[in-house]
Amino acid sequence: MTASLAVFFALAALAVIGAVSLIVQKHPIHSALSLIVVMIALAGLYLLLGAEFVAAVQIIVYGGAIMVLFVFVIMLLNAGVEEHTSISKMAGAPGLLLVVALAGFVAATIARSTESVETTLQTGEIASTLGISNMIFKDFVYPFELTSFLILVAVLGATVLAQREKS
């Protein structure tokens, strides 16, 4: 087993444990912490894949902004331990079925595409920040501008939502 494979398994185990813990934990803050663990493990995996810029953005934006917002809202609303209400059978059975079907579908797809993925392995250029910025500002400039518009809309939406109604 090579070093990178060992690192991969360690990080993958961390991510899966975090994701399972997200489900198992009863308190939202603990779930949020588990999710942060998953995100940091994924950032490590991105580093392993040579995507340093994405790894840094992942931690800065996901870990440092989005999850902080979640923790902030949980603290603000003083969310307690999750209430246990019985899952409605109508929703539960199809839901479980759906998960199984999805897992099966994904597994089948992966199993079928094994060959094609492995043959193209390691032909990649080095993923540099320069390359990414070239792509964003040349090939993907319109989507990029659209996202800035999306953020503007989101900011407006959040502002409107946060406003208290005048009585």
Partner: peptide, 27 residues
């Protein structure tokens, strides 16, 4: 996949997904 195919498109998509996730979290 971006690494496997040797193209940066995948990483750019990830950046877009992160942006969308941030907007989604705010709203």
């Amino acid at each position: 996949f971006s690494q496997a195919l040797g193209k940066l498109d995948g990483q750019v998509f990830v950046l877009f997904v992160i942006v969308v996730a941030a907007a989604e979290a705010a709203v």
